[in-house]
Computed example of a mutant assay.
Amino acid sequence: MGRDTEAAALLGPLLAGSAQPHQVRRAAQGLGLPERGRYAVVVLGAPAVVPSDGSGVRWCWCGEVGVVLLGPGGPAGPVARLVAAGAGPGGVSPVVDGLAELGLARRLARAALLTCGPGRREIVALEGRLPTALVASAPELSARLVAEVFGPLLVLAPAERALLVGTLEAWLECGGSVGRAAARLRCHRNTVFNRLRRLERLTSRSLSHPRELVETLLALDALRLTKVGT
């Protein structure tokens, strides 16, 4: 059995979340890793080769799933190494406290990966994508949400739909400021206002009503994860 195959065999039960205590101990001994420590899991869209950078960070791979033993810092450094190696798309779990928690970490990293849109090469941390991960983890509900909220937009011509969605995105990125969104889009503030009002009419949802705004935001996240609207 090759070294990579042996590592994958030891990691498999841990990443599946089904490892018994004796399997955790065996994996720690076989891999030369501490049972307790600061770990993160990365799930990639495809396997990648990550060269050593001499930093002492330990990687163990099981196909497209990587387990990294972190030092005092967080996963930002190792993730940057992945990006430099051309890996991606990928999702990164929160830090967990030991090998026994790798199953949970893998599930959370997978949820983060699901938030990467089609064709994207980004590697993202779950902490920055929690609402989107909720949407992406329930594809049937997400599709229904898009149809319910943005259904009337989906019958528009692609350019017209993209204009309205792009204006909404700019308005959100500008903190709900029509003036700043207009500057970003290089148009008059009344143009932004009129586009947003039209979007409200089409979706039957008010951007000034908190609950309806949340629903629109979640639907927008779901829309971004599909090729519709691109």
Score class of each variant (00 low, 15 high):
3 R>Y: 08
3 R>N: 07
4 D>N: 03
10 L>W: 06
13 P>H: 06
13 P>Y: 04
15 L>Q: 09
16 A>R: 11
22 H>L: 04
24 V>T: 02
29 Q>Y: 09
35 E>T: 13
36 R>S: 15
37 G>W: 02
39 Y>T: 06
43 V>D: 01
47 P>A: 03
47 P>V: 05
58 R>F: 09
61 W>T: 13
72 P>E: 13
73 G>Q: 12
73 G>L: 06
75 P>A: 13
79 V>W: 00
81 R>F: 06
82 L>D: 07
90 G>R: 02
91 G>E: 03
97 D>H: 07
99 L>S: 08
107 R>A: 15
112 A>S: 12
115 T>Q: 11
116 C>S: 15
116 C>A: 15
129 R>Y: 09
130 L>H: 12
131 P>L: 08
136 A>G: 03
136 A>R: 01
151 G>D: 03
151 G>E: 02
158 P>N: 09
158 P>A: 11
163 L>I: 03
164 L>E: 11
169 E>G: 10
174 C>V: 10
176 G>C: 06
179 G>C: 07
181 A>I: 02
191 T>E: 09
191 T>S: 12
197 R>L: 13
200 E>P: 07
207 L>Q: 04
207 L>F: 03
211 R>V: 03
218 L>T: 11
218 L>I: 08
224 R>E: 03
224 R>A: 11
228 V>T: 14
